[in-house]
């Protein structure tokens, strides 16, 4: 029986500071055979290990076709991410994965893709935005609804501005609080669903963010005629093993680490609407 527990070592080959507390690491496994065999789907995650501190589940933010390395965009949130933030190019960390179910990108082909993301939940879906833009001919419209608490939380601002100029692409951004110059909406991404331009009979939505926002966004989208089965959501819980064994990431009957983190909305609707579970 293969021991599924120990991580593989990987080296930081680039680091980008995205905002005050968000950074992106470009990583490569030390062992070339592990790197070349490594495959993932956007929406999947790795357990990222800081030796001496522990592991955290972090979604992959790079393009799955980039084979020489992979990216993690990380927000400093707790003890482990605070430690990882201190690392620089050349430093080593442990990685095991990829785990979980990714976004249903194959079944989204030929359809409008509606991305709704709230707060700092944007990393798992930014991988989807890049994926769609790189394979533009396979998809129809791309609608991006991004909400942040404060305008200064918006990372990749230049990217959003650039994406807004792309053909058949609509970018709608909302912030609850803003600095003086804010060309976008003041409020939540839910307010923006009305302005989203998509064909509800031929669209797929992917939502990531706080659970309350997910429920509200799914409700607004279904009110616009999008069937619930075409809505997919990425959820977060305390994932400690990633293997479906440790039990911390359970939500109702689901183990988020192996059954998710991406779910078709009807699978988790009851649990999310209920809340507090």
């Amino acid at each position: 029986m293969i021991n599924p527990h120990p991580p593989h070592l990987a080296r930081i080959i680039d680091r980008v500071q995205e905002s005050d507390d968000i950074f992106t690491l470009r990583l490569r496994f030390n062992d070339p055979s592990i790197q070349s065999a490594y495959e993932f789907k956007p929406g999947q995650f790795n357990m990222v290990y800081l030796p001496g501190a522990g592991e955290v589940p972090i979604s992959l933010s790079s393009d799955p076709d980039q084979k020489d390395s992979f990216f993690h965009t990380i927000r400093v949130a707790g003890r482990v991410t605070k430690g990882i933030d201190k690392l620089g190019i050349g430093d080593e960390i442990g990685i095991r994965g990829p785990y979980g179910q990714g976004w249903p990108l194959e079944s989204a082909e030929g359809k409008d893709v509606i991305i709704v993301t709230g707060g700092l939940g944007c990393a798992p879906v930014v991988a989807v935005i890049h994926y769609v833009l790189k394979r533009r001919e396979r998809f129809r419209r791309l609608v991006i609804l991004q909400g942040v608490k404060h305008s200064h939380d918006l990372i990749w601002r230049a990217s959003y501005e650039r994406w807004a100029q792309a053909p058949d692409t609509q970018v709608l951004i909302a912030a609850n609080a803003t600095e003086a110059i804010w060309p976008w909406h003041i409020g939540t991404p839910i307010d923006l669903v009305q302005q989203a331009d998509f064909d509800s009979a031929n669209a797929v939505s992917m939502i990531c963010g706080p659970e309350g926002m997910i429920v509200a966004a799914a409700k607004s989208l279904t009110e616009r005629g999008l069937p619930e089965a075409d809505i997919h959501v990425s959820l977060e819980r305390n994932m400690q093993c990633g293997l479906g064994l440790c039990g911390h990431c359970q939500l109702g009957d689901k183990f988020l680490c192996k059954d998710g983190p991406v779910f078709a909305y009807p699978e988790v609707k009851f649990l999310l609407e209920r809340g507090g579970l």
Partner: peptide, 30 residues
């Protein structure tokens, strides 16, 4: 079957042990 993963670094900082131990959904860390 719930268990927590725990990390214990040596004081010198050049060695660390990663273990698991039984955990409970009644605990605050769960």
């Amino acid at each position: 079957f719930c268990h927590a993963e725990i990390e214990e670094a040596s004081l010198g900082g050049n060695h660390s042990l990663h273990s698991r131990e039984w955990d409970s959904c009644f605990g605050e860390r769960h």
